[in-house]
């Protein structure tokens, strides 16, 4: 009998932190994300953002602040509807982008099933200053090639 009250207290605490029933509609469809062009399907929970859903399923892509400020986690929505769960600055999403399927994935919560396509997920430039060095190397190589040609 001794440890029981503590155990009960813990159980009731757990019940307390469960998602409030009102937000989980029984029988409500769970939104899915379909990744074009692979067709991979990700199952989201209610209220989950596109970014949260992808990371929860084990994926990674180019993300930054995760709080709607830096704009680098944008993906393209081919089909479906979504809303932003916070105000998004005009410097982050332009009026044009609000209409052309651009989706700021860290703030976007699907209203329906979504089909998305990732951006810039292959070769990513993370140090533009090293690229400047490479550009200098290109100029040197060209100069060398030109020099060699004139000597011949």
């Amino acid at each position: 009998m001794g440890p029981e009250p503590a155990g009960q207290a813990r159980r009731s605490y757990r019940r307390h932190v469960e998602v409030p029933a009102a937000t989980v509609r029984k029988g409500a469809p769970v939104p899915t994300l379909t990744i074009h062009p692979t067709g991979e399907k990700i199952f989201l929970a209610q209220g989950e953002t596109v970014l949260e859903g992808l990371y929860k399923a084990g994926y990674a892509y180019t993300i930054g602040c995760r709080r709607g400020g830096c704009a680098i986690c944008k993906v393209d929505v081919h089909d479906g509807a979504f809303d932003y769960n916070r105000p998004v600055a005009d410097s982050v999403i332009s009026d044009e982008e609000r209409a052309d399927g651009t989706c700021l994935s860290c703030r976007a919560v699907p209203d329906s099933d979504l089909t998305i396509e990732m951006r810039d997920s292959c070769l990513r430039l993370v140090n533009p200053f090293l690229r400047q060095i490479n550009e200098k190397a290109r100029l040197r190589a060209e100069a060398l090639a030109a020099g060699t040609t004139t000597k011949e």
Binding site: C65, G69, F129
Partner: peptide, 25 residues
């Protein structure tokens, strides 16, 4: 020097993460 900038910014990892130059507000 630019070739050592990554060590200058993040001394231990010696790699600039992909957010350092791309993320600003």
């Amino acid at each position: 020097t630019p070739d050592q900038i990554a060590k200058g910014i993040f001394y231990h990892a010696r790699e600039i993460n992909e957010r350092f130059t791309t993320v600003s507000t």
